[in-house]
Write a protein that binds this DNA or RNA. Sequence first.
RNA 1: GGCCCGGUAGCUCAGUUGGUUAGAGCGCUAGCCUGUCACGCUAGAGGUCGAGGGUUCGAGCCCCUUCCGGGUCGCCA
Length: 592
Amino acid sequence: MKRTHRCAEVTAADVGHDITVMGWVQKRRDLGALLFIALRDRSGILQVVVNSETHAELHEKAVQVRSEFVVAVRGKLANRDASAVNANMETGTVELVAEEFRILSKSETPPFHIEDNSSANDVLRLKHRFLDLRRPDMQRNLMLRHRLAKCARDHFHDAGFLEIETPMLTKSTPEGARDYLVPSRVQPGKFFALPQSPQLFKQLLMVGGFDRYMQITKCFRDEDLRADRQPEFTQIDLEMAFVDVDDVIGVNETFLRKAFKDVMGVDVPTPFKRLPYDQAMSRYGSDKPDTRFGLELCDCSDLAVSSGFQVFSGAVDAGGSVRAINAKGCGPKYSRKEIDALGDVAKTYKAKGLAWIVIDEAGFKSSFAKFLTEDVLAGFKARLGAEPGDLLLFVADKDDVVFDALGHLRLAIAAKTGLIRPGTWDLLWVTEFPLLERDGEEDRWVAKHHPFTSPMDEDLAYLESDPGKVRAKAYDIVLNGVEIGGGSIRIHDQELQQKMFRTIGFTEEQAQARFGFLLDAFRYGTPPHGGLAYGLDRLSMLMLGKDSIRDVIAFPKVQTAACLMTGAPDVVDDKQLDELHIRLSDVPLEAE
RNA sequence: GGCCCGGUAGCUCAGUUGGUUAGAGCGCUAGCCUGUCACGCUAGAGGUCGAGGGUUCGAGCCCCUUCCGGGUCGCCA
């Protein structure tokens, strides 16, 4: 027997014709002399009818099937009687009248039912991921991911990009995330690292003369997992020579517009909004702001200084700030307990507390009422445009704490009060990131993006005198408050690169030891270049409205970075370790 | 490493103040059934209450430890 159709790909034109389908038994409905089988493949479900009166032998075989048996059925596609039409089914007007039937493979009773919105828990599903993948929503997810990846290849191919692979076994580089290491058998005591991204290689491809490169590739970072972070994930990575910021942004806006059109059928207008980093922080308290709603931050530091409220004035005196958001109309919506819960949110992000004022017709209620004179209150109300019914929330601290706390508060309030309209696709560039940031632990400047990111031309003068002031030619693309990609224009000038290394405390020897191959390359004619990388998993996740990238990865890992299906990671034979010149220490021995 | 949530039948869950033999729905098995599509009807099987320890006359329930999973902070250039 040879398959002629997928189950749900039969059309009205096929009615009356002989067809053969193969798939899994979704459901068996046995009416005695009449048997219905809902047959499923990746396209959907088709009902098969087996009649014992007309096909006794066939029926005898078919009644043996159970859920998830794999069968092949040949027969005539027929229209159902009007009374038997199932309007909830894509193929509900037709059915396959079996004339030949083969059980290709039996199945044990599956540990959970194969269906959308499975209520089975994650452990069970991930242990049996091969079954979980049969569920229609997992099939849809991975099909969308495929379309997105294909769209990227098509678009960048059409725009003159070449897909070139870069090594998986490479050199560990300092800074950034923790590397996954691979021991060398041939060179005792030495290790490869799996790439955190193809960053250096794609820059070398630019030096190598491939002026437009793209790749869809795995990246590895040995850090703790989150709903949107897996130890291995996939980037759509690209790099272009002879470009500046606007060129990179342009080709990517075209890509995203095409991706949303082709994959989602959604029109996203270009150009996208652009928001400089300092505005993103001061208005939204985040470098990946969700701008689908307001609740913007408002600086009240000047009012706070003269408020007579020590917590407020002290924060400003210490170089911090007092900022607030006005949760319009939330006064009556939030109980005291719920406001306290907002305080807990603020404390999660290191705020020492959350000060609040509820404005009502009669006056106000506040957590710091005794410090609120008429004048001070009037000042805050005017600054925040407050009206009766509003809930004003204040955080006083160092700027980074204030931004972090209020930034997350506005998300919490938006989520709780339903400010976010589903089905909106809010694309936004965040630009002009700081080039450097202070490393608290080591008390030095470190690259915020990476050490090859170019400073903005107008800030070059400050690189040595006031490094914190220098902005970078770096940009992130943000979708609905989630960073889906980021990149920068790179340094292509050797002198500037040296200066950059000096600023982040690298001696020439250290830089040479770590990035020598790149610096060598840059001595031989480097085109100006820059690029960007997307998180394919995250973009797929958002397009599907999911809140975990596990839903768009065929075989994901759990929070302990383990694969429940294969049991990886696992112990290996001593022989393998010997070959790799590795001796274990400090490993708690399990009972053998 | 910290904090929070969860773990009872194959699955999803209920389980009163600590009290007899731990229940339900779905699924599964067998029988019956010619238009089902959440098929129906009848009968049946199915339990290390995650694991270990403690308190108690008595623990699914209380306490301690631990394992597993999820969320989150730190971490993630």
